[in-house]
Computed example of a mutant assay.
Amino acid sequence: MILVTGATGHFGNATINFLLEKGVEAKRISALVRNEQSVDEFKKKGVKTLIGDYNNYNSLATAFVGVEKLLLVSGSDLMNRTAQHLNVINAAKEAGVKHMIYTSFQRRNESENSPLGIVAQSHIQTEKSLKESGIDYTILKNNLYMDFLPGFIGEKVAETGVIFVPAENGKVSAVLRSEMAEATANILVTDSHIGKEYDFTNTTAVTYHDIAKTVSEALEKPINYISPSVEEYGKTLASQGVPAEVIGIFSSFAVAQAQGELDKESTDLEKLLGRRPTTVQEFLGKLYTANL
């Protein structure tokens, strides 16, 4: 039995769909959901649903009984995520889960002064706890979702002609979330990934100068890239009504890109997919051409 946590989220849901596409019988897949309201979607696919909450250890221990492979999609509650993930790991160990796959994150700097400190420590602690648990593991070090790049570029870029983000000359090796999910499904259906850590990054990293050029060509108008200070960036977003929490996340990832945290080129994803991942240029070119 394969169990996917975070099944109602984009990553978990996409992984389940890819498992079905790859011929895994629906009865061999379980989707972990937090409430009964989410059950119908999976019943239509024939996928079993189990009720469980990262905050409720007993619900997890019950849900994990009989599970052989478990995909732990990292939680979004940054303040409580470490404790939640430990609940999952400990419950999986108690239930006898044989293999866990964990969606972690790409980084170079693991110290407290990392620009991604807001997200880093829970991932680092989860990886450590998983390795110490005795459960066979596979760790996926996810780069930035390519799907999020339009948020950094700005929804009014066609009007302003400017990409305004404090990433300096740093590079990012973003990947489509759907392609990460497809590669994860490939890991779940095969048995050669125990003890492996994969860099879910693209084969080529790009700067925002590159991104501006791609968007400019797609929109057929000049697009300039400006890298402001973090303070100016924050004030500008705040003046546009962006919540402080969102500003903090975007600023952290922008600074991380400036410092090379996401500048990692790898063929891991290409090998797992059996093809070259979609490039940033391909994704943005198609997206902004469609918006003409």
Rank of each mutant, 00 (worst) to 15 (best):
V280S: 11
G241Q: 05
R275F: 06
A256H: 05
A256T: 04
T236K: 15
D263S: 14
G195P: 00
G154T: 04
S239W: 12
T203Q: 07
F164Q: 07
L284N: 00
Y225L: 10
A205M: 03
V215K: 11
K264S: 06
A183F: 05
S229I: 01
S216F: 11
K156V: 09
R275V: 05
A158C: 03
V280D: 10
S229V: 02
A256I: 07
I211D: 08
S178L: 14
G151M: 07
A218G: 13
L269E: 10
H193L: 09
A205T: 04
V172H: 03
F283E: 06
A254N: 00
E220W: 07
A185P: 06
G274K: 08
T279E: 11
E179G: 00
S239Y: 11
S173H: 07
G161T: 04
V175Q: 00
T204H: 15
P243Y: 02
Y225C: 10
E232G: 02
P166I: 11
A158G: 02
N186T: 12
L176T: 00
I223D: 00
A254E: 03
V206Y: 15
A181G: 13
Q281P: 05
V172K: 06
S227Q: 05
L262V: 09
V206D: 12
G195F: 01
T236Y: 13
E182H: 15
V172C: 04
V206P: 02
